[in-house]
């Protein structure tokens, strides 16, 4: 079942008098419980498409359908609410809050997503997710004491703690070595299946495509 539809999305960046069309009318549907990987050369528009789909920047034209609503017509507050409660993000870097422990990173995300959990339920949820990403033994550690792979696992835990409908992963393994990249991708795959999340993944690394259910190639701002 399609839960997320990108319909004729265009994006034009203007630099002075020069206008560059990065997305030229992209159509794409994401299915529940599937990992869709976007691949393509640098400048093909894959990261731009992901950030537009995630509500991090607006499209110049087109529609993005999610739960019956066109995200591209929503105001900032409406998009923020969806980002907080329905979307999860994994970036190239973990982007953890430096002054929060692993456990607090997840508490913050639960607070932000306004999940109405009692303290005990919240704690149980955090423990479960930390076990899932195998970081329960480091729950009181600060990001500065974690390795790159551990940070990315915490970032994944933060991205799924509030049970998002869609997970956006932009080059999640780019800053990791080969072994850790595989670990992270296996984890994303496992979580997508276990929690029935819809995942949109952008990657340069062809080895990571093995974990995707569907691979979409982009070139020159179009899905080919």
């Amino acid at each position: 079942m399609s839960v997320f539809t990108i319909d004729e999305v265009k994006k034009t960046f203007t630099n002075g008098e020069v206008a560059e069309e990065v997305l030229k009318g992209v159509n794409l549907s994401l299915k529940e419980g599937e990992i869709t990987a976007l691949v393509g050369a640098s400048g093909s528009g894959k990261s731009t498409l992901l950030t537009i789909a995630a509500g991090l920047q607006p499209a110049s034209d087109g529609k993005i359908w999610f739960e019956g609503q066109n995200i591209n017509l929503m105001n900032q507050e409406q998009i923020r609410k969806i980002r907080a409660s329905k979307f999860g993000f994994i970036f190239q870097f973990a982007h953890l809050v430096p002054f929060l422990t692993v456990e607090e990173q997840l508490t913050l995300m639960l607070d932000v997503s306004e999940t109405k959990l009692k303290r005990q339920e919240q704690q149980r949820e955090i423990d479960n997710v930390l076990k899932l990403v195998e970081m329960d033994h480091r729950k009181n550690a600060y990001p500065s004491s974690l390795s790159g792979g551990e940070k990315q696992r915490v970032a994944i835990a933060r991205a799924i703690i509030h049970k998002p409908k869609v997970l956006f992963a932009d080059e999640p393994t780019a800053s990791l070595d080969s072994k850790r990249s595989k670990d992270v991708m296996q984890l994303i795959q496992r979580l997508t299946k276990t929690l029935n999340i819809t995942t949109l993944l952008v990657t340069h690394d062809e080895e990571m495509l093995a974990y995707a259910d569907r691979v979409i190639k982009m070139s020159d701002g179009l899905v080919s």
Partner: peptide, 12 residues
């Protein structure tokens, strides 16, 4: 940078 990330994950 921190504010940007917090906004990205949905902090008001």
């Amino acid at each position: 940078g921190l504010y940007g990330i917090l906004k990205a994950i949905g902090v008001k």
